[in-house]
Amino acid sequence: IQIFEKGDFSGQMYETTEDCPSIMEQFHMREIHSCKVLEGVWIFYELPNYRGRQYLLDKKEYRKPIDWGAASPAVQSFRRI
């Protein structure tokens, strides 16, 4: 998965294949504004440590949070399923 600090795949980008319990600790990001799921299925969580509201992401590109069903870019953790 590739995660971006700004919408439309702009700003700082990080790519990982590992679960992330805290985007702040692992990537020094506060929010995720866009992402590209390159393979597999992932779950975004609103809070750290896989808690809070969940969003299921299939293999595709998400230009903004509304594309994965979120009203805001408040994603604090994610993991692959």
Rank of each mutant, 00 (worst) to 15 (best):
I1V: 13
I1L: 04
I1C: 14
I1A: 03
I1D: 00
Q2H: 14
Q2L: 09
I3R: 01
I3P: 00
I3Y: 02
I3M: 08
I3D: 01
I3F: 12
I3A: 04
F4R: 00
F4K: 03
F4H: 08
E5C: 08
E5P: 09
E5H: 07
E5S: 07
E5M: 12
K6G: 10
K6Q: 06
K6R: 07
K6I: 09
K6S: 14
K6L: 06
K6E: 10
G7T: 08
G7R: 13
G7M: 10
G7Q: 05
D8S: 14
D8M: 14
D8N: 14
F9I: 09
F9N: 13
F9K: 05
F9Y: 09
S10T: 03
S10M: 07
G11D: 09
Q12E: 06
Q12Y: 12
Q12L: 09
M13P: 12
M13C: 09
M13S: 08
M13D: 07
M13W: 06
M13T: 12
Y14D: 09
Y14S: 14
Y14K: 09
Y14R: 09
Y14N: 13
E15L: 05
E15S: 14
E15R: 06
E15D: 07
E15N: 11
E15V: 09
E15I: 03
T16D: 09
T16I: 06
T16M: 13
T17I: 12
T17Y: 02
T17N: 08
E18N: 14
E18K: 11
E18T: 07
E18S: 11
E18P: 06
D19M: 05
D19P: 03
C20E: 04
P21M: 06
P21F: 14
P21V: 10
P21D: 06
P21H: 14
S22A: 11
S22K: 13
S22H: 09
S22R: 08
S22W: 14
I23L: 04
I23T: 07
I23W: 11
I23F: 10
I23C: 07
I23E: 00
M24C: 08
M24E: 06
M24I: 08
M24W: 15
M24H: 05
E25W: 02
Q26V: 10
Q26K: 05
Q26Y: 14
Q26A: 08
Q26L: 12
Q26R: 10
Q26F: 07
Q26N: 03
F27R: 11
F27D: 04
F27A: 12
F27I: 14
H28S: 12
H28N: 10
H28E: 10
H28L: 12
M29E: 14
M29A: 13
R30Y: 08
R30D: 10
R30P: 10
R30I: 05
E31C: 04
E31R: 13
E31D: 15
E31F: 12
I32Q: 01
I32N: 03
I32S: 05
I32F: 14
H33G: 11
H33C: 12
S34E: 01
S34P: 00
S34A: 09
S34F: 00
C35I: 07
C35H: 01
K36V: 10
K36I: 07
K36M: 11
K36Q: 10
V37H: 05
V37M: 13
V37E: 04
L38D: 13
L38N: 05
L38Y: 05
L38S: 09
L38E: 09
L38Q: 05
L38M: 07
E39T: 09
E39Q: 07
G40A: 06
V41R: 13
V41I: 05
V41C: 05
V41A: 13
V41P: 06
V41L: 11
W42I: 09
W42H: 01
W42P: 00
W42K: 01
W42D: 00
I43S: 11
I43C: 04
F44V: 10
F44R: 00
F44L: 10
F44W: 04
F44N: 00
Y45T: 02
Y45G: 01
Y45S: 06
Y45V: 00
E46C: 09
E46F: 01
E46W: 00
E46Q: 12
E46R: 04
E46D: 01
L47Q: 04
L47E: 09
L47I: 01
P48A: 08
P48M: 03
P48I: 03
P48R: 06
P48K: 10
N49A: 08
N49D: 10
N49G: 10
Y50I: 00
R51S: 12
R51F: 03
R51Y: 03
R51D: 10
R51V: 08
G52N: 00
G52R: 01
G52Y: 00
G52W: 00
G52A: 01
R53I: 03
R53K: 10
R53L: 06
R53H: 07
Q54M: 04
Q54N: 14
Q54F: 04
Q54K: 05
Q54Y: 04
Y55C: 12
Y55L: 06
Y55Q: 15
L56A: 15
L56E: 15
L56R: 15
L57R: 02
L57T: 05
L57N: 01
L57P: 01
D58V: 11
K59S: 04
K59P: 03
K59Y: 05
K60M: 14
K60S: 10
E61T: 02
Y62C: 03
Y62T: 03
Y62F: 15
Y62H: 15
Y62P: 15
Y62E: 03
R63E: 07
R63I: 15
R63L: 15
R63K: 05
R63G: 14
K64P: 03
K64Y: 08
K64I: 02
K64C: 04
P65V: 15
P65N: 02
P65S: 09
I66S: 13
I66G: 05
I66N: 07
I66Q: 15
D67Q: 07
D67W: 13
W68Y: 02
G69M: 13
G69A: 10
G69C: 03
A71R: 10
A71T: 06
A71H: 13
A71F: 09
S72Q: 14
S72C: 05
S72T: 05
P73D: 03
P73S: 13
A74L: 15
A74W: 04
A74Y: 04
A74T: 03
V75L: 07
F78S: 02
R79C: 03
R79T: 11
R79W: 02
R79M: 02
R80A: 02
R80T: 02
I81L: 06
